[in-house]
């Protein structure tokens, strides 16, 4: 266990983008959001609502609009929580999406660099097996970084919530937003974690494939990672007039979203909709069990194991010195 911990620490020493890039990205999100929040002007409805202390201060308001605002203000807390719950999920998605980019570059680079700079001879002079090295990199990408992203996402949600509350306190917008509800936030974190776990399982074979590329190719690893995914469907269509590869890749890349069975009816977000979903409805719209019971998920996991095994064997037996 200590060896794995040290190997994972080593990954963060070497690939500093694993922790620096998400922090920078979160910094950008927080700054942009804060800037946008405090710069709201009266040239749009929302800015007007944010700067008015009560509905009487809103001038030139049509009766229909006034009615909608009053309805939004009168929602019970359970419906108002939906606004925050949706915000939590959007923030989580923004950070997770960025994580996917960072992890992609990490995976294609981590076993390639050690061969390029010949440091593989130093690593191989240590009593660490090739399996431990390859698995530590996989664990870094598929467990440690996602865990960090969940924590970062939670912290960002709370920070932005604090900023929004500070900005909108005492305004019409403030009256439309809910009170802080710890359970709602915890629930969103559980859903985010579940989606993350399901996503990691679903995309595990792709991650393992990138690791295999990283240990195999001799140069231009980025092109090797990207070009076949573009070229193979294209060539199949040009020469065979079929789309099997496209369908396979499409299923592997977006099949995860299909398995979530999201009820999009509950995703409509408007402060003034009469059918504003309750927060419970929003959470219930994520049916994640499909991911864990899908045969495709487990076939993918088996494929990931096979690809990792191949990566370990190649690192062990190829003469990289």
């Amino acid at each position: 266990m200590n060896t794995y911990l040290m190997l994972i620490r080593r990954e963060f020493w070497e690939h500093r983008s694993l922790w620096i890039a998400p922090l920078v990205w979160v910094g950008i999100i927080v700054i942009m959001s804060t800037w946008g929040t405090f710069q709201l002007e009266r040239d749009n409805d929302f800015g007007e609502f944010a700067n008015a202390q009560n509905i009487e201060q809103l001038q030139d308001l049509s009766d229909a609009k006034r009615e909608e605002i009053e309805r939004a203000m009168s929602y019970d807390n359970d419906r108002k929580q939906t606004i925050y719950a949706f915000s939590y999920l959007v923030i989580g998605a923004l950070i997770t999406g960025f994580m996917c980019i960072v992890v992609f570059f990490y995976l294609i680079d981590c076993l390639f660099t050690e061969r390029r700079d010949r440091s593989i001879l130093f690593w191989k002079s240590m009593p660490v097996s090739d399996a431990q090295v390859v698995l530590s990199k996989f664990l870094t990408a598929m467990v440690v970084v996602p865990l960090g992203v969940i924590l970062l996402s939670g912290a960002t949600q709370l920070l932005l919530l604090g900023i929004w509350n500070l900005r909108f306190a005492g305004s019409v917008v403030g009256m439309m937003t809910p009170d802080w509800d710890m359970m709602s936030w915890v629930r969103s974190m559980v859903i985010e974690s579940g989606m993350m776990l399901g996503g990691l399982m679903w995309y595990a074979p792709i991650a393992a494939y990138f690791l295999l590329l990283s240990v195999t190719v001799k140069r231009m690893v980025f092109l090797w990672a990207v070009l076949p995914l573009i070229a193979a469907p294209l060539l199949e269509f040009i020469f065979l007039r079929s789309r099997h590869v496209t369908e396979f890749l499409g299923q592997r890349f977006v099949g995860y979203v299909e398995l979530l069975h999201i009820d999009h009816a509950n995703m409509r977000m408007s402060h003034v909709n009469a059918d504003m979903p309750r927060v419970q409805d929003l959470y219930d719209s994520f049916q994640m069990s499909g991911i864990f019971t899908s045969l495709e998920t487990w076939i993918g996991m088996a494929a990931a194991a096979a690809l990792l095994f191949a990566a370990i064997r190649i690192r062990r037996f190829r003469d990289d010195s």
Binding site: N2, T3, L5, M6, L7, R9, R10, W13, E14, E114, D117, R118, S119, I120, L121, F122, M126, P127, V128
Partner: peptide, 18 residues
């Protein structure tokens, strides 16, 4: 062959760890 990105303290830490 020593990794060029590594700090001296990290090299000692790593070998001590494994």
């Amino acid at each position: 062959v020593l990794p060029r990105w590594m700090k001296v303290s990290q090299a000692v830490e790593f070998v001590a760890g494994v």
